[in-house]
Amino acid sequence: MKGQGLKAYVILYLVFLYAPILLLPMFAFNSGTVIAFPLQGFTTGWFVEVFTTKALIEATRNSVFIAVSVAILSTCFGLFAARAATRYNFPAKGGILGFVMLPLVLPEIIVAVSLLVVLIQAGLSTGIWSVIAGHVLICTPFSIAILQGSFANMDKSLEEAAVDLGETPLSTFRLVTLPLVAPGIIASLLICFTISLDEFIIAFFLSGNEPTLPVYIWGLLRFPARVPVIMALGTLLVALSIILLITAEYFRRRGLRRAGKRDVGGFL
């Protein structure tokens, strides 16, 4: 009886969670230009417009370039930090790691305005590169969290065996460590890519005249006639991120299997 009530509540809660993304495709295929009920006819015209709007394609190109750079840089930093955290002891370890993880709990607007102030004072212009710099700051903690899991799951004796068998530290890392943490690296790349692609506040302050996709969407939201195009774009993005997530989850599980661990939950 009690279990049934709880289950009913959880299902209601899932409806609440899914409400916005269920509406998204409805309006994306709706021929009416006003985002309201009742729905009008069926159209795929908004999707055509997504692929023919030049400014949108430009913004997407900026965003993808930024997200790829951020994914690579953050994952490199993540590898350094996660390796140091799981393998070595050094002075002020907790403090240093805590500080690197700090952006995780800092309101993003604070990160954004503080970077903006410094850039302006230094006389530097804002643009794609400053967005990359800001995003690396907020993505690195996520990368560290993911990779720390991979490194912690790894059997230390495998590396020691390689060294005993005459491999140099570098070749040990390349031949033994890297393949074992590879699934974690792929998961980290995908998560950082997704976070950067969706990040708005830092890009809003630091993109200058090179808008990212969220900054472009923000500008469009003011024009009601353009909103259906955003709905079509949103539908495409949802599909894309679900595919990315399933891929990341697949690699994470494969990594767990390789390390010989049982699966105990998902991301984060």
């Binding site: 969670l17 899914y18 409400a19 916005p20 993304i21 509406l23 998204l24 997704t194 969706d198 708005f200 969220p214 969407i217 923000w218 939201l221 909103v227 955003i230 709905m231 949103g234 993005l237 949802v238 991120s241 679900i242 990315l244 997530l245 998902g266 991301f267 984060l268």
Partner: peptide, 14 residues
């Protein structure tokens, strides 16, 4: 977690 990997801006707008 799936609903939260969709664009934050679009979710708020919806």
């Amino acid at each position: 977690t799936i609903p939260f990997w969709t664009s934050y801006l679009i979710r708020v707008f919806l």
